[in-house]
Amino acid sequence: MTPRIDITLNVNGSDHDIRVEPRRTLADALRQDCGLTGTNVGCEHGVCGACTVLLDGEPVRSCLMFAVQAQGRRLRTVEGLANAEGLHPLQQAFTDHHALQCGYCTPGFLMLAAGTLERHPDIDDESLREVLSSNLCRCTGYQNILRAVRAVRDSRRLAREDAR
């Protein structure tokens, strides 16, 4: 075993002081050292996207980064979506549109969608389809996931237009 390194991970606005081996992936550090088990680990080699989190607002595979590399960055995980007022609009839309069945891929899809809509609020259908092809779901057939994310994009667009 190589010596452990003391690091601080900022996740959903809170600092977590942890001690990890350099080989500890960010996904495993979130789950096992920070106790944030909402991020799921699927393939562990960057194919499935179940472990997708936001790194300074951008979606990344947390199994393809080492925890030591995430120091000083702002991380967001599925635990950061809901707040005291209730579910995040994407979480509600996934429920409304039956965008999950077993739910294993859901945290990854939610973070992929959250990061994408924040950076590209007017993303077109084709580009959204392309982005959501990043992650794997073996239950839903993807169409309901697309519907859920499109619904949030469209309702936010309406809200922006109403505010003008």
Partner: peptide, 12 residues
Amino acid sequence: AANIAHAPIRTR
């Protein structure tokens, strides 16, 4: 660039 892997891979 649009043909390289997926968006979260292109981030890194």
